[in-house]
Amino acid sequence: MRGKQVIKLTVNGEPYEVEVEPHMTLLEVLRDKLNLTGTKGSCGVGECGTCTVLVDGKPFLSCLTLAITVRDKNILTIEGLARDKKLHILQKAFLEHGAVQCGFCTPAMLLTAKALLDENPNPTREEIREYISGVLCRCTGYVKIIEAIMSAAEEIRRRGSEYE
C-alpha cells in the first residue's frame, strides 16, 4: 500500500475522514491536517513525552505512531479535555497550583494525568511520579505538577465528576 488514502479517526469525539500517507505520524496528521496544534512535538525519539495523546484512553507518543495504524480508534487530544467550555478539574488544578510554566509539556502532562486518574482514581504520590515520568518538564521541577494531580484526584473523587 503506497500513496494517499482516506482513514477514519475519532478525535475528541468528532469523527474525521482524513487523507494520509502511510509514513505520516499521528502528530503530523493532528497538527497539519486537523489543525489541532495543542499537541506538541519535540524530541522525535520517544524520550520527552511532549507529543502524548490518548489512544483509546491510553497515553501514546503521537510522534512515533503512524496515523494509519490508529484508524478507527478514539483519540483524545488536549483540545478535547475541556467540555462545554468547562475546564477539566485537572486543568484547573494545574493553573491553581502553579503547575504550568512555559506550558509546552502541559498538554502531555494533563493527558497522562487523566489516563492515570481514569485507571487509578486514588493514586499515591509515588504512583503519580511513576506514571508521569515519561513526560519531561524543564521548567517546574515537577513539584507543583505532582501537587496539582494529587489535588485534582481528590477533587474528582469528592465530586464524582471530572468537571465542576
Binding site: 497538527r31 512535538g41 502553579g98 504550568v100 498538554p107
Partner: peptide, 23 residues
C-alpha cells in the same frame, strides 16, 4: 496568584500558539 486567565488558560486547553504553531 495563579496565572492570569489570558496567560494560563490557553496553555491548559492547547490553544496557546507557540512559534512552532504559527500557520
Amino acid at each position: 496568584h495563579p496565572p492570569l486567565k489570558m496567560e494560563g488558560v490557553p496553555k491548559v486547553t492547547g490553544e496557546a500558539i507557540y512559534t512552532v504553531d504559527v500557520k
